[in-house]
Amino acid sequence: MKSLDFDFLKITWVNVIDIIVVAILLYYIYSLIKNTLAVNLLLGLLIIFLFYHLVTSLHMDLLSTIINKFMSVGILALVVIFQPEIRRFLLHIGKNTFLQKNKTWWGNLFGSKDLERDNLLRIKPIIDACKSMKKTRTGALIVFVKFYDDQLFANSCEIIESKISKRLLESIFQKHSPLHDGAVVIAENKIKSASCILPLTDNEKLPPQFGLRHRAGIGISENTDAVAVIISEETGEIAYAKQGRVRMNVSFGELEKLLNKDF
């Protein structure tokens, strides 16, 4: 009786690493597209793929040719369709690199105490403005970015280029102000622009009480490395959006820690 050959069952450490890397990539992709329209797009592409094989097996030449022409664009179509998800995927990877994770360690070598003191000076007028707007239930959306994208913001905003000020933030979001309807963008230790129109999130599972202000804050945090502070006009509650996720009922102490960490 001949012995069976089980060579195909041999697993090397390279195979294990390969499986782990693929699993990590699949997890990242899933975390980025869950609760978004990308899931529906993937299902649509899967249905088209299965339908193509069905009509091919039935020798329906005309339909096969049409679908084949559609599928021939392949990777280019996927890049166009999933451009926001690909952008978020690359941003997500960049945020989790070794250097980003250890920026605090680098800061300890080059004067982190000075940086922390400067951060507190920058954050204080923002916290004070949030306290005042929470008390008066003034709706606000403040976006913090590390790098100001002129193409993204300048085309839909009023340029301010001003020092961060409690009174300026309050006056911008005062309901009779012509600039109150939109977001304020803060970068490079300045109020760069106001009345900004931001992309809304595609997340279909957000609470129904979330209005355009919350959806815009979450949307900008999905598509860029920005974080957003949202003050509800109805309740005065403060929310904090980062990487497409939102933290509700943020206290001023928590807000200071979050901004000190991310800004």
Rank of each mutant, 00 (worst) to 15 (best):
T97A: 10
E233T: 06
W106R: 12
L46Y: 07
K242E: 07
A226V: 13
F153I: 00
P199M: 05
I172C: 10
P207A: 06
L63Y: 12
E254P: 01
G107E: 03
E161N: 07
R167T: 09
L90D: 06
K113F: 00
L212A: 01
L32F: 07
K135N: 01
K192G: 05
I29K: 00
N260E: 01
L41A: 15
I238M: 03
R215L: 03
E85P: 05
T104L: 15
L115I: 10
D114H: 14
T104N: 15
N40M: 08
C157L: 11
P208R: 02
T224N: 11
I17L: 13
E188G: 05
T36P: 11
G74Y: 02
I231R: 06
F98P: 09
K190D: 00
R137K: 15
N96K: 01
A216G: 03
L42F: 13
L259K: 02
K257P: 07
N223V: 03
F98D: 10
L259E: 02
F82K: 13
F51S: 09
N260G: 01
E161D: 07
I86T: 13
M60R: 05
F252W: 03
K113A: 00
F252C: 06
R88L: 04
F82I: 14
S193I: 08
A226M: 14
N119H: 11
L26V: 13
L120W: 07
F89T: 03
N35T: 07
A129Q: 12
K113N: 00
P208W: 03
L41P: 13
K101R: 01
V143T: 02
V246A: 14
A140L: 00
I11N: 01
V246H: 09
C157E: 12
I24W: 08
I123Y: 03
G253F: 08
D18W: 06
V39G: 02
R87L: 12
G219P: 15
D262E: 11
L109R: 13
F82L: 15
D118Y: 07
K34W: 14
T97F: 07
Q151I: 15
D225P: 03
E237M: 10
F147V: 15
C157H: 10
N155A: 12
L42E: 07
T224Y: 12
M248N: 05
D128Y: 02
V145S: 14
K124H: 11
F6Q: 03
I29T: 02
N203D: 13
K135T: 01
P208S: 06
A228I: 06
E234H: 15
H53N: 15
P199W: 04
K261D: 01
G219R: 12
E233L: 05
K242I: 14
Q243I: 08
